[in-house]
Design a protein around this nucleic acid. Structure first.
Lengths: 147, 147
DNA sequence: TAAAAATAGATTGTATGCAATCTAATTATT
DNA sequence: AATAATTAGATTGCATACAATCTATTTTTA
């Protein structure tokens, strides 16, 4: 097996693995912070979307979060059972389900600000690196082909 | 709620989400490629480690992949049932388990080179961006605090 | 307008991912 | 040496992820 092939197959040369590992390690840091609010990471990012735009469709949520109904349906059921959101199926198009924050769900937004604050302290990147990284990640996502 | 707080809580300003979404989307692109070899993404990165260094401990694998035994134990059982690896518990320290590639497992390395080749075409980043991104990701991982 | 195609969510099945706990075995302490 | 503390890996329980399928409901199209 030639040198180039060996190099190509090394774990540390895989961009996918850098992303995967970094993402997981960061999310792991969120857990103790989110535990205090009794929500998981996926529930957290779902709420972030709802705090920006209340009353959106499950479909829209899925597009924003890159998640499908197989993940969102049970997750939203969970958030509803926690009393943070309500599912409504009352549109003209009865295939659609709209998600609304409850009062409790809106109140959580006020308290949760300590989470990104703590994470900012955990991820020690200066503003330049932060922006550069964000830009490169967006470039990767926008450039992805295949389906 | 003040402007800064609103901004801080926007999904698109979360580094965690950029990483999470990009990682997932890339891994999704791997699926059809890996399906041809009847392995999953996690099995693939496990094999990448073994192709670099055969006969290592489960513990070492876990450290390299940021995975714990709760994930690795069933995954390695799967790889063994596919005939790609063998678990050996014959060391002096009988708490340890060593993972060895089988002939079939070693042969797969020769064929799998088409996978990173296809992914390189899918992720359209030039060499500079690629290296910069890798460096920033490593910087994030190395800088992470908390546990 | 009746049949075909498309769409939104829900459901099912498989594979992670990880915290917490457990067991067996090894090391460190007293 | 006997006990305590650690360690490696397995097990359990919960929460994702996502492809594939299903159902009910629109929309399109012939």
């Amino acid at each position: 097996m030639d040198k180039l092939t060996e190099e190509t197959l090394k774990l540390d040369n895989q961009l996918c693995f850098s992303l995967y590992a970094t993402s997981k390690e960061i999310i792991r840091r969120y857990k103790p912070l989110l535990d205090k609010f009794d929500i998981t990471y996926t529930q957290y990012i779902t709420l972030l979307v709802l705090w920006e735009q209340d009353g959106i469709l499950v479909k829209t949520l899925g597009e924003r979060l890159y998640l499908d109904s197989g993940t969102l349906t049970p997750l939203l059921t969970k958030l509803e059972s926690k009393g943070l959101i309500v599912k409504q199926k009352d549109t003209k198009d009865s295939r659609e389900t709209t998600i609304h924050l409850t009062g409790k769900g809106r109140e959580l937004k006020e308290k949760i600000i300590v989470v990104p604050a703590s994470m900012g302290a955990c991820v020690k990147l200066d503003a330049d690196d932060f922006l550069c990284l964000q830009k490169l990640l967006k470039k990767v996502r926008n450039g992805l082909t295949g389906e």
